[in-house]
C-alpha cells in the first residue's frame, strides 16, 4: 500500500516563482524516505503541501489514499509534522504544557493524554526537564520537544522537515535510533535533510530533488550507484612497483595516484578481486574497499550548480 504519493505536483507562487514542477513520487507504507536537494529545491514546499497547510497549483498528492486538498481533514488526522528547527513550540510554557496542548488538539484527554505525554518525554529524553520553561532549553532540546510534538498523535505517517539541523552528533545519532524505532512500529517517515550520511543511515529510499522535480530516486546505494557502478578501493603503504602496475592496467580507473604510496582506484567485476589480491600479496594492510557514498553521488549530480541556490 502507498502511504504518500504525488503526481505531477506543481506549485507556483505569485511573482512566477516555481517551487515544484510536476513532481511525482511514491512512498510505500512503512518506508523511511529521504528528500535531498539544494536550498530552494522545493523540499519544504512539498512537506507543506503534504501536511495540508499549502495548496498545490497543479497535480495532486495523497496520504494513505486521501487527497490532501479534497480530504484535508482526514489527512490531518493521519499525519504528524515537524517543520524543522528549534521553533514550533511555545517558549513561555514548559515542555509538558506544550505537549498537553498538542495532545488535546489531536483529541487526547484525561489519562490517555497524560500517559502519552509521559511516554514522549521519556522517548525524547526530556523527562528530567519536563517542567522547565522551553525558553531555557538548548536548541537541540527544543528540537527534541518539537519532534515529540510531531509524534503526539501517534500518527501512521510522519513528515519531518530537517529534524536534525543543529543537533549535536549524539542527539543526531539518537534521532537515528528513534527513526529506526518508528520504522519498526510500521510507520511511514518522510524526512528532508542536508546530511547525506544521515539519509544513508536511516532511509530505505531517497529522492534527490532539483528545481522542484525528481532528479533520482531509489535506495541510497542505488542512487549512489547512478554516478558509478564501480567498486572503490583505496590503499596506502603501497610499494611503488605495485602502484605502477595498477596504473598500467587499462580496466582500472585511477582516481588518485599522485600521493606516493597512496592510491585510490575504481574497478568492477573480477578486476576488483584481482586488484585486492595484488595489494594483499604485496603486504598492503591499510586497505578500504567500498562503494561510492550517497554524498558523492549528490555532489556529482548537483555539482554543476555550485553554490547557487536552486532558484
Amino acid at each position: 500500500m502507498i502511504a504518500v504519493s504525488a503526481s505531477g505536483l506543481t506549485r507556483t507562487f505569485q511573482g512566477g516563482g516555481q517551487a515544484l514542477e510536476r513532481f511525482t513520487f511514491e512512498v510505500p507504507r512503512g518506508e523511511v524516505h529521504g528528500l535531498l536537494g539544494p536550498n530552494g529545491a522545493g523540499k519544504t514546499t512539498l512537506c507543506r503541501i503534504l501536511s495540508t497547510v499549502l495548496l498545490p497549483t497543479g497535480g495532486s498528492a495523497s496520504v494513505l489514499g486521501r487527497d490532501v486538498v479534497r480530504d484535508a481533514a482526514h489527512v490531518r488526522r493521519s499525519v504528524g509534522v515537524v517543520f524543522g528547527g528549534d521553533r514550533g513550540v511555545y517558549g513561555r510554557l514548559t515542555a509538558r504544557q506544550n505537549l498537553n496542548f498538542w495532545a488535546a488538539l489531536h483529541g487526547l484527554s484525561g489519562r490517555a493524554l497524560r500517559e502519552r505525554v509521559a511516554v514522549l518525554l521519556e522517548r525524547t529524553g526530556l523527562t528530567g526537564r519536563a517542567d522547565e520553561r522551553v525558553d531555557h532549553f538548548s536548541r537541540g532540546m527544543k528540537q527534541r520537544l518539537h519532534l515529540a510534538r510531531g509524534l503526539v498523535a501517534d500518527p501512521p505517517v510522519l513528515i519531518l522537515d530537517e529534524p536534525t539541523a543543529g543537533m549535536d552528533p549524539i542527539a543526531a545519532h539518537e534521532f537515528r535510533d528513534l527513526v529506526a524505532q518508528l520504522r519498526d512500529d510500521g510507520r511511514t517517515v518522510l524526512l528532508t535533510t542536508h546530511d547525506t550520511a544521515e539519509a544513508e543511515a536511516v532511509c530505505d529510499r531517497v529522492t534527490l530533488m532539483r528545481r522542484g522535480a525528481v532528479l533520482a530516486t531509489g535506495s541510497p546505494s542505488s542512487v549512489a550507484g547512478l554516478v558509478t557502478s564501480q567498486d572503490r578501493i583505496s590503499a596506502s603503504g603501497v610499494p611503488a612497483a605495485v602502484v605502477a602496475e595498477l596504473v598500467a592496467r587499462p580496466e582500472v580507473v585511477v582516481l588518485d595516484g599522485s600521493g606516493g604510496d597512496r592510491v585510490e582506484l575504481e574497478t568492477s567485476g573480477d578486476t576488483t578481486g584481482e586488484v585486492l589480491h595484488l595489494l594483499v600479496d604485496a603486504g598492503v594492510t591499510r586497505l578500504v574497499r567500498g562503494r561510492p557514498s550517497l554524498e558523492e553521488a549528490y555532489l556529482r549530480l548537483l555539482r554543476r550548480q555550485g553554490m547557487a541556490v536552486d532558484r
Binding site: F83, R87, G88, L105, H106, G107, R149, A153
Partner: peptide, 18 residues
Amino acid sequence: ALGVFESVVASPAPLPVV
C-alpha cells in the same frame, strides 16, 4: 512568529475552535 501556526493548522483541530 514562533513557527507554531503551521502545526496548529495541520492538526485535526478546527482553527476557529482553537
